[in-house]
Design a protein around this nucleic acid. Sequence first.
DNA 1: GTTAAATATATCTAATAGATATATCTTCCA
DNA 2: TGGAAGATATATCTATTAGATATATTTAAC
Lengths: 194, 194
Amino acid sequence: MARTSRTRFAVLGSLTLGDRSGYDLKQEIERRMGAFWAESIGQIYPTLKQLELGGLVEEVAPSDEAKRSRRVYRITDAGLAELKDWLRAPPQPEQVRNEILLKLYFGPHMGAETALGHVARFEAYQRALLELFEQFKPELVAAADSEEQRLFWEITLSSGLHIADARIAWCEETRRRLLEWQQAQGRDPDTAGD
Amino acid sequence: MARTSRTRFAVLGSLTLGDRSGYDLKQEIERRMGAFWAESIGQIYPTLKQLELGGLVEEVAPSDEAKRSRRVYRITDAGLAELKDWLRAPPQPEQVRNEILLKLYFGPHMGAETALGHVARFEAYQRALLELFEQFKPELVAAADSEEQRLFWEITLSSGLHIADARIAWCEETRRRLLEWQQAQGRDPDTAGD
DNA sequence: GTTAAATATATCTAATAGATATATCTTCCA
DNA sequence: TGGAAGATATATCTATTAGATATATTTAAC
């Protein structure tokens, strides 16, 4: 995929919020950043190893025998420097692969009925997301340990709200269009029923 | 990545619009579907081969010596059936990896200045997209060979417009927030200049 | 008739998604 | 006390994908 891994930076960044194990990172990325970042769990452990080799993270208390099955990592000064370099670089435009739109683009091969089903499911999912974001907001605000942290977290949360709103509006518009089309089909004996 | 390739269906679907070579497919997906679907060029040729092996596509006039360096494919009945099965199945929710939001989530490590730069570039890009979509609309409408085709293509185009609008609104809101924060910092001697 | 640019096919590597394997720890019930 | 169930935790594997690159062929330009 990408020439340089972004998993590295998702991991380094999360480690600036506190020491974490691989499992902690997985949970935190899913829970706190899930609205805009999906991380492959299978990438986290190899990435931690690789970062440790490069001296960007280090294991906390590696000789402690008591909790042998839990390896906790801490970001190093070198790791923080690398993260900051990456944060300064302009973000790359994302590769989009929106499956519902791909299917709708080939809509004449599935018909309005199936399309309406897809759109309805998509809309329900977006509404559930919206609700989740609203519930999540106070938790995020409470977890922030500075005003600046809170500002940036609210900014990312707001993006999720804007996008979900826009998608719901598109769903409503699309449902209306498809229903109109269906009705027009029903009224038109030339094209109905094929 | 995904357990089952979606490149197969982007290719099969495009071939329902007419016979195409690998290069044609690349051009068409980039130009017509680029707003919601990115296809890896390196995947198209192996996918065509694999589809041909499975009998889902076939080469058009494979023995023609005149245009030996251009292999044109046509979808078969089996290919169309497989496409239709896939179109009926509910779309999977997309994996999001939004790099600008990942960076902003770690915003305290870059500061408001850098963040404003990232947001400004993102906004300019979204505005350019919006313009592109508007220019593209009449071309898409003209290319549709049926009212149904036009309906579905307008639906996918409309999604791009909604999302770009929402992102621009988020950019404006975010710029306002970051500027306010910067000004508050400037007025506050305790936290300014760190 | 040679160069340059566009067209076209193909291959390669590193990154990633998603599934799965396996071990450990905690809880709760018999 | 034991052991089953479920949560926690680490790790590995494969098919898919992004993006770069190699290399012909065709067309246009000079």
